[in-house]
Design a protein around this nucleic acid. Structure first.
Lengths: 192, 192
DNA sequence: ATAACCATGTAAATGGTTACATGATTAG
DNA sequence: CTAATCATGTAACCATTTACATGGTTAT
């Protein structure tokens, strides 16, 4: 999915600045399945603006009275043309997920790493998934449409499954005992 | 992780041609956390060759007698210098996983999709995870070192958790009933 | 024979990351 | 007053993807 469509998607959720769009990818609702940095967001917004798919409604309506906030902040809003383009972009058949996990690559080659390094990589990775699971679970489901709830739940299922597996198999990876992975007794087993 | 290190990693597992390396990313042991196409593998191998980190041991030792196979097939092997470079490359602190899932993005915006399209996207995605889980589970664990077993198990845990969640929440996404995601009773809940 | 698969590679285009450059605001 | 965070943007670099170009082998 190109950055332009990604930006349109964030603006469907509400008007936002480039900075705020960035945060949605870093720690917001898209964090577990998409990413985008400033270097792709700002050029994308510029293009969308040129094409009339978004508009600047700046310097933020509320800012005119009282508190002024950041003067050069630009709030973007999606236009009708933008909504049409977005709907069209969603009509594609999605390709396979693209994943690049350097941490998994390192753990795959556990026997090539110094034990202390391996432990650090492992613990950081596990802590991250636990944090993310807790964060997504802390979000209020009130009034959120099914698609977004579904995706949240998918993220939690994914984070928690990884965390549970990692905790159950830490010793194996650290070479302290078993020769085969311990299954953390999943109910899914019954379904197969 | 750059393509060169990725190629070195595959060659640690055994001598291989560019075509075979590609397959390891497409459906082999790296499939769930790394990816690389011909367009990045062949140039990477060329560079590694120039740097002396890999060598061509072609046209495959066994090919000299009897069956000849494909004449221009080149089998690459990692060199001692390559192993040293690989070990050094693994000493990094890995960055966050990079994930780009267009399918999740589409499902997030379920209410913007035609129901038939949504169902197709959903079913394809689910089928893929079930296939992958079955495939990884079918692999023989005999003699495989802990790091690789651990990563396999992680892949299975991840594939199965997603498949189980999706099956439990299909109706929710398709708007046919509940307003909140159904939890497929995970044992992980007890641990928190 | 014909399709599917094995096999290698390049070139152009695309797209993303990183580093740079700047400056205001807010909380301690 | 100082650090963290908010805020925008560009340019150079890097990497990957896609399309092209070619041809041998194996199974039906």
């Amino acid at each position: 999915m190109d950055s332009r469509t990604l930006c349109l998607g964030t603006l469907i959720l509400g008007d936002a600045s480039g900075y705020e769009i960035r945060k949605m990818f870093e720690e917001g609702p898209f964090a577990h399945f998409q990413d985008a940095g400033y270097g792709s967001i700002y050029p994308a917004l510029r293009k969308l603006l040129d094409e009339g798919l978004v508009a600047i409604i700046a310097p933020a309506p509320e800012a005119t009275e009282g508190e002024r906030g950041h003067p050069d902040k630009k709030i973007y809003a999606i236009t009708d043309a933008g909504r049409a383009a977005f709907r069209e972009a969603l009509a594609i058949t999605p390709g396979r997920d693209k994943i690049r996990s350097d941490a998994c690559f390192l753990m795959f080659f556990a026997d090539w790493l110094e034990p202390a390094h391996l432990a650090r990589v492992f613990d950081d990775y596990l802590a991250h998934f636990k944090d993310r699971a807790a964060f997504v679970k802390s979000l209020d489901p009130e009034g959120v449409p099914p698609g977004r709830l579904f995706t949240r739940g998918l993220g939690v299922a994914f984070y928690e499954a990884i965390a549970a597996y990692m905790e159950a198999n830490r010793d194996m990876l650290m070479q302290t005992r078993p020769a085969a992975p311990v299954e953390p007794a999943r109910p899914a087993d019954a379904a197969e």
